[in-house]
């Protein structure tokens, strides 16, 4: 199961021709997508999310604080929780907790799609005796007022679905594994694994770059690298929905990307699926320099861009899992199954 990287110049030439536009012959495009088992939004919502994800389990993944508590109960590694800001008065007191840190990350517990995440680093040339100065990941200064306002916004529910009031969680910063340092710009690269009925289905590395302003979301311009689910090596890479071969900022050939601790990452992804009980789950993992694989967050409605990154459709793999009579309980047996499943 390996896909050659499509040369970008060939793609661009094809795109130039109006006749070749996917919507020029919608029926042919429809058939081609269908034959390759590409999953569409409607199919995902109806066939998989509605069928395999019971509504009552959603809060476990939609609320990062609950996810974290659950993960700690099940011995799943997560970035350390430094503080929780629940009420407006907490905003004052939390600042003193932050003073001793080298950096931290503020997240809304119910934020979605990477919304409302603020990363602060300790400014480099700090003067003695002066209050602590913070900067954003891009080096711009971040005042205490801005931090307070961000926390206040989170509590007011700006970033949560439907404007429900929320709590802010403060986490330790993740130390990017040096192996990934050359593949990323400004942000932390994370690994998205789709887990279906306890079995990993497809994986993608999301690398932030200049275009994505340090964000690791594909629709914001991050690079998506499809990863062979059995081997943990790159098979294909895209940015803005188009195939690429090198990281746009660091110029590293993306095909060289090989993920260490692959089996451990898959194991972690599977245990996340087991602890939530959700049948169709997107698991976001990171590799910390010191702590190894960590669970970042879970998603009960994982996106479809992973198919573009892998240059492969999800449906054949999902259907082969649905055809299985039983799924082994032990993680090792499940991972062994992967080698001859797809």
């Amino acid at each position: 199961m390996s896909f050659a990287l499509v040369k970008p110049d060939v793609m661009n030439m094809k795109r130039l021709s109006l006749f070749n536009h996917p919507l020029a012959s919608p029926i042919r495009t429809y058939r081609a997508l269908h034959d390759q088992g590409i999953m569409g939004m409607n199919c995902r919502n109806l066939r998989y999310i509605a069928r395999y994800n019971p509504r009552r389990l959603y809060p476990l993944v939609d609320n990062k604080l609950k996810t974290k508590t659950l993960a700690i109960e099940h011995n799943v590694n997560v970035p350390e929780l430094l503080s929780v800001v629940r009420e407006q008065p907490d905003i004052r007191t939390v600042q003193s907790v932050l003073n001793d840190l080298n950096g931290f990350c503020i997240k809304p517990a119910q934020g979605s799609g990477g919304k409302g995440i603020l990363v602060a680093l300790r400014a480099e040339n700090q003067e003695e005796g002066q209050p602590v100065q913070w900067t954003r990941t891009n080096g711009k200064p971040l005042s205490r007022n801005e931090i307070s306002r961000h926390l206040s916004n989170i509590l007011a529910g700006i970033f949560s679905l439907g404007g429900r009031s929320d709590v802010a969680i403060v986490e330790e910063l993740i130390q990017v594994d040096p192996l990934f340092q050359q593949f990323t710009h400004e942000g932390v690269p994370d690994l998205r694994v789709i887990v279906f009925k306890g079995l990993p289905v497809m994986a993608m590395m999301r690398l932030s770059c200049h275009d994505s302003h340090g964000k690791a979301n594909l629709h914001q311009g991050a690079v998506g690298v499809g990863i062979d689910i059995a081997q943990g090596v790159a098979v294909n890479a895209v940015q803005h929905g188009q195939p690429i071969t090198h990281h746009p900022d660091t110029q590293q050939p993306l095909i060289d990307l090989k993920i260490p601790h692959w089996q451990n990452l898959l194991r972690l992804a599977c245990s996340c699926s087991d602890m939530t009980g959700l049948g169709y789950l997107g698991v976001d993992l990171v590799l910390d320099k010191h702590k190894g694989p960590l669970l970042l967050e879970l998603n009960a409605r994982p996106g479809l861009a992973i198919q573009v990154a892998n240059n492969a459709g999800l449906l054949p793999r999902l259907q082969s899992i649905e055809a299985l009579e039983s799924i082994p309980a032990s993680l090792d047996e499940r991972l062994a199954l992967l080698h001859h499943l797809y």
């Binding site: 793609m11 996917p22 919507l23 390759q36 590409i38 409607n42 895209v238 240059n311």
Partner: peptide
């Protein structure tokens, strides 16, 4: 509400798959 096929704009979104058929 029970249509599981592709949306029209998804044909453009996943248009790259057409060429690697």
């Amino acid at each position: 509400g029970s249509y599981t096929g592709y949306r029209l704009l998804e044909l453009r979104r996943f248009g790259v798959f057409r060429s690697s058929e």
